[in-house]
Design a protein around this nucleic acid. Sequence first.
DNA 1: CTATATACATCGGAAACCGATATAACGAAA
DNA 2: TTTCGTTATATCGGTTTCCGATGTATATAG
Lengths: 105, 105
Amino acid sequence: MAESSSALTEAVFYILLSLGQPLHGYGIMQRTEELSGGRVKLAAGTLYGALTTLQDKGWIEPAGGEGRRKSYRITPDGRAAARAELARLRELTHNGETIIGGWTE
Amino acid sequence: MAESSSALTEAVFYILLSLGQPLHGYGIMQRTEELSGGRVKLAAGTLYGALTTLQDKGWIEPAGGEGRRKSYRITPDGRAAARAELARLRELTHNGETIIGGWTE
DNA sequence: CTATATACATCGGAAACCGATATAACGAAA
DNA sequence: TTTCGTTATATCGGTTTCCGATGTATATAG
């Protein structure tokens, strides 16, 4: 790939989408499954690994936590990354529609 | 992720889109860059690795080759995979628009 | 003749995902 | 009250995929 707006993985995109409001890890799992209509189920390893990576990137940050839960919130950089990804997805979808639309039918 | 329609990488999606007509490896590189408006540039390792993987999956197949070029064509399974990916992209784009559209603004 | 573009291929390293495993607290049912 | 399912976080090893570098070779343009 190697380009300006590098692709986000589906897991990361849904994690960011899930954090419109502060939410804890397990809640992100559930919200992702809900948002995707049950299609995307984050594995524990994927989620908690990504939470660390995303904090290192500054796209999410801790937002306190009640009891044993650890909540996170999305940062401005995180929102920017999600918007950039949406733009990439739109372009990709558009290209796919144009080209695949011209196949046999 | 772990789901019914597993995500294709951008590299693989563009390789499939490039093969509307039989084309050789290097041509796929160029066509991908062209189709993506210069944004996606396939690294050699990515391309030739993916060509092997995609043949193993039965999504592309050899289509002869003039001289030192090796051409490939997409198979019906390959087309199905591209269409499934397009559906996934549409859903993802739609979800992204809905949710991100509700942010700050 | 030499540099650039074409063309294929492999290698090692880095990400990212997954499933399994571990730990632990909670609430409900038996 | 004990046991089971859910909530909740975390780590580990293995697999896949990508990337950039490197290698080889031919063709073409300057």
